[in-house]
Write a protein that binds this DNA or RNA. Structure first.
Lengths: 203, 203
DNA sequence: CTTGGCAGCTAATTTGAATTAGCTTACAAT
DNA sequence: ATTGTAAGCTAATTCAAATTAGCTGCCAAG
């Protein structure tokens, strides 16, 4: 990995832990293993580093969204997959989503950073909401719409079903961001949540 | 209101918007209507102001928790109230909780501040989790346990019911913290959530 | 009245973080 | 070989924010 990338990487780690305002360029440099003034060979200011992180992040997100079909209403293509989903598969899906958000090297640090900077400007608010609220909800809403039509689940409002399915995942995720030591506990209740979800939405 | 209190008040507002590290004592002073050095007649440092906010906050919380019985397992006292709760009452309860958290002058600013400082030290993590996750969940879990015994709702795992009821409220709350302009929309989906919750947990 | 101390002010002072200047080395291309 | 440039360093410089010093006016207790 090039120095220029390592700077972004270490800066992201620090911003995610302490927030932009509480991180000094000297700390970033030290983490990278160079002296502070050398940072300026790569970026013209601290803010510039932050912006570069944002840019990289946006481009990664677009790719990832395309890959996972989490962006558009492209779920129809997967209609066949969704036409039969067992309770166990729903559990695996929920835990998979949770674990990915919680442990993915990049996604996880980026989410924490956004958490700390979300009130600073409206671009960041929008980004946070899109990534962790609106997109997951609309994707899952489309999925549950399939599943109800397919007769796998009861015919209830799919938007609300998505909320019932996803909001607990989201809450447990933010809990584990704060207290990673509670992950095991979170996973247990998460599984109980999904099994009960599956039961109460039985057609 | 005394100057000493006004300092805490304005500081809290600023910390909630920008985060501790991005607020300058001069801004706090200006908001109060005095000069920065005068702050030091009341608090010995910026950090001291922050600590005072935390202290005040803790004491307020203890009082409020006692008042609302949101702390202990004191729900049993209210068993009679809970033995018959209609869907409309559940809606009112959920929206009431949401609106209180979102609009209460003090609670709201304090939550935003905690959001921005939550990763800084474990005391703040604990506090956040207790106030916005563990306590609401355990209170509602106790409530739903009542309601299932009373035959008002289906006999399912009350912890998970609490999660299903509260997690959407929590998620919509953090959404509105970021994007207050979406409150009306949040309230609509919140009501749909609770009505559907009530329906799927019909005994 | 007069005095003590609270709460404010202006004017330093200190501190420390961000950035710039200017030098050095390595190495790749001519 | 020479030269140009990328990427590092140390040593300034700048600048802003936190805090301290020391003065003033007010007013309440004696």
């Amino acid at each position: 990995m090039t120095t220029k990338q390592r700077i972004l990487d270490e800066a992201l780690t620090l911003f995610a832990e302490k927030g932009y305002g509480n991180v000094y360029v000297g700390q970033i440099a030290e983490a990278v293993g160079i002296k502070a003034p050398s940072l300026y060979k790569h970026y013209k200011s601290k803010q510039d580093i932050f912006n570069a992180i944002l840019d990289e992040m946006k481009s990664r997100y677009d790719k990832q969204a395309d890959a996972l079909n989490m962006n558009g209403s492209d779920v129809n293509a997967d209609a066949n997959i969704f036409s039969s989903v067992s309770e166990d598969e729903l559990v695996k899906m929920g835990i998979g989503l949770f674990s990915y958000f919680l442990h993915d090297e990049y996604v996880c640090r980026f989410r924490k950073m956004l958490t700390l900077e979300q009130f600073r400007d409206s671009e960041l608010s929008l980004l946070y909401t899109k990534q962790y609220v609106d997109n997951p909800l609309s994707y899952q809403s489309a999925m549950f719409a399939m599943l109800t039509v397919g007769g796998v689940l009861a015919k209830e409002d799919a938007d609300v079903m998505a909320l019932h399915f996803y909001a607990p995942i989201y809450m447990l995720l933010t809990l584990c961001d704060r207290q990673p030591e509670r992950e095991a506990e979170a996973l247990k209740i998460l599984e109980r949540h999904i099994r009960q979800f599956s039961k109460i939405y039985q057609p």
